[in-house]
Simulated assay, not measured.
Amino acid sequence: MAWNEPGGNNQDPWGGRRGNDGPPDLDQVIKKAMDKMGGLFGSKPPAGNSGGGFGPIVVIALIIGVLAALYDSVNIIDQREQAVVLRLGKYYETLGPGLQFKLPLIDTLIKENVTRVQSKSLKSKMLTEDENIVDVAISVQYVISDVKDYVLNVRDPQSSLVQAAESALRHEVGSSEMHFVLTEGRESLASEVHARTQKYLDSYGIGLTVSKVNLEGAHAPEEVQDAFLDVTKAREDEVRLRNEAETYANGIIPEARGQAQRQLEEANAYKEQVVAQAIGEASRFEQLLVEYQRSPEVTRERMYIDAVQGVLAKTPKVLMDVEGGNNMMYLPLDKIVGNRVSDSVSESGGQHLTASDLDKVTRQVMDEIRQRQPSIRRTREAR
């Protein structure tokens, strides 16, 4: 039955009776609602408080608190970020990109960028294996690989990263000589520091991955910089001279090997030639022996003629026996033939001697012999 129907005793829902004075006062309605809420929480409004302006302020504050709690429970996580949720201070879950919710006043949400490459630099004086001091500067590039470990395992991850990188650098520099650190060992040094730093970070459970280590500088202290430059120049000269010597050796050694190989091949060819010639001479001697056994006189004369022909063929001088005496006539065929050949060559325009030229020279030699024979006979008769 409605409160304003007949028989309803004119009772309004707020506990008052409906009179003829119009609708109830709004302040009274709010005051009664606040009193009821206060009764639920075991509190009573103070005596004598009419509640004329206190009720709306409390409601507005309550509404603002509710809206603030709702706003704090809604979080937007960027595509490059991940978030760790702590519920009452304890790890609860890891949230990915998107619109995420958490319980207000209970959950704590910590967001970190897991795609950005960050960098840390450090520079320090270090002692090398050969007890020299060098100034070394490096930069370490890294990304967050595990946001949970990054947030919860270490209080200051970046400081721990710097300390791990410095420890790895000191270990590698202390195990190397100064010359190696300052010259050809720079690249390998950066690679070793990278691997050792990552090993330290993994043992810490820090949630970071080192992407690259750059060796930005390595040089001697300023106090000894001039002396070090002199030493560096001397070492560079040493390397240059060594390279020149190696270049010369690389050029001369193959040439010497080639000459040695050529001489070996020539020696082998000469050996084969001598052996083949000896075999041929032995076979010729055996055949000649057979012929000699058949006809000794003819073979002996033929061998004599061949021997004389072989000897006389190598000399330009000819000795002729004169009939009836022991005198020998000497013909300077070398000069005669040489003059005739030069004349023939000049007449023929530098061409080779022909058969007619040779016949002409032969006739001239025979004429010279005939002209000298009477004078030789007269000389014999006079004696």
Rank of each mutant, 00 (worst) to 15 (best):
A2D: 09
P6A: 13
P24D: 12
L26Q: 06
Q28M: 02
K31H: 08
G39H: 01
G42W: 05
S43R: 13
N49C: 05
G53K: 08
V58W: 00
I60P: 06
V66Y: 14
A68I: 12
A69S: 11
L70Y: 09
L70W: 06
D72N: 13
S73H: 03
I76K: 13
D78E: 14
Q79S: 13
V85W: 08
R87I: 11
Y91K: 08
E93Y: 04
T94P: 03
L99G: 08
D107G: 11
D107S: 12
I110R: 14
N113T: 08
V117M: 10
S119Q: 15
S119F: 03
K120D: 04
S121A: 14
K125A: 10
K125W: 05
E131S: 11
I144D: 03
S145Y: 00
S145F: 02
L152D: 06
N153I: 05
N153V: 11
P157Q: 09
Q158C: 05
A165G: 07
V173I: 15
G174L: 00
E177V: 03
E177Y: 04
L182F: 01
E184N: 13
G185P: 04
R186G: 15
R186E: 15
Y204M: 15
G205V: 07
G207N: 02
L208P: 02
T209D: 03
N214K: 09
E216S: 15
A220V: 05
P221M: 05
E222C: 00
D226M: 11
D226A: 15
D226C: 00
A227E: 08
F228D: 10
F228V: 04
L229Y: 02
D230I: 12
T232M: 08
E236D: 09
L241M: 10
T247N: 12
Y248W: 03
A249W: 01
I252S: 14
P254D: 00
G258N: 13
G258F: 05
G258D: 07
A260P: 06
L264H: 06
L264I: 08
E265Q: 13
E266G: 00
E266K: 07
A267G: 05
N268G: 03
Q273P: 03
V274C: 01
A278F: 04
E281F: 04
A282G: 10
A282H: 07
S283W: 01
F285E: 12
V290T: 14
R302A: 11
D306L: 08
D306Y: 01
A307E: 02
V308L: 15
L312M: 06
T315D: 12
K317G: 05
M320H: 04
D321K: 12
D321A: 11
E323F: 12
G324R: 01
N326H: 06
M329K: 01
P332W: 03
V337R: 05
G338S: 14
V341H: 04
S342G: 05
S342T: 14
S342E: 15
S344Y: 06
V345F: 04
E347Q: 13
S348H: 02
G349L: 06
H352Y: 02
A355F: 03
A355R: 06
S356A: 15
S356R: 09
D357G: 07
D357E: 04
D357C: 07
D359S: 15
D359Q: 14
K360F: 10
K360C: 01
V361F: 09
M366V: 14
E368Y: 03
I369S: 02
R370L: 07
Q371S: 07
Q373T: 05
S375C: 05
S375K: 00
I376W: 04
R377I: 01
A382L: 08
R383W: 01
